[in-house]
């Protein structure tokens, strides 16, 4: 019985000969390279925190297929992005465009930096005014002179 089982299992062995080399993902590596470069900056609209390059969602696959085709039609990166934005809005791009309603987003951090710099500057200026004059009062000078002369005398 055991032998028979062994034999039948051995018969399965040649099946591994069917194993094939992993197929190339793309027929055209140049197109694929551009696709990946583009898709990394694009959002998968179904699973919104994933880039279009890495998403396995059905819609993302469709979008990649469409982009591949646009690349083959020699469309520029900007034309491809416009194609997507006209359907999915600016949301499809990870980097929001510089527009009136994204002004705060783009300039906000710099405005905050500026406010910080103004506060820092005014504080430093105020501190400078508070520190007493470096010079000595007349009385202190006299005393210092006396001390200095004293040491001179002893040295002599």
């Amino acid at each position: 019985m055991k032998r028979l089982l062994m034999l039948s299992l051995l018969c399965l062995l040649p099946l591994s000969a069917w194993a094939d080399e992993a197929k190339d993902l793309a027929e055209d590596p140049v197109v694929e390279k551009r696709l990946i470069a583009l898709a990394t900056d694009l959002r998968c609209v179904q699973c919104q925190n994933e880039s279009l390059a890495s998403s396995r969602a059905g819609i993302a696959q469709d979008m990649r297929r469409e982009i591949r085709e646009l690349i083959k039609q020699d469309k520029s990166d900007q034309e491809i992005k416009d194609w997507l934005v006209s359907r999915y809005g600016d949301f499809v791009m990870y980097q929001p465009p510089f527009k009136s309603y994204t002004l705060f987003l783009w300039l906000g951090p710099f405005a905050l930096l500026l406010v910080g710099a103004i506060i820092l500057y005014s504080q430093i200026r105020k501190r400078r005014n508070l520190t007493p004059e470096a010079g000595l009062s007349a009385d202190a000078t006299r005393r210092a002179d006396a001390l200095l002369n004293m040491t001179k005398d002893t040295q002599a």
């Binding site: 609209v45 179904q46 059905g58 819609i59 469709d62 979008m63 469409e66 359907r87 999915y88 809005g89």
Partner: peptide, 13 residues
């Protein structure tokens, strides 16, 4: 069948 019309309509799901 191939979802092309869906893409034109900005389908997200």
């Amino acid at each position: 069948i191939d979802g092309r019309v869906g893409l034109d309509y900005g389908l997200t799901g």
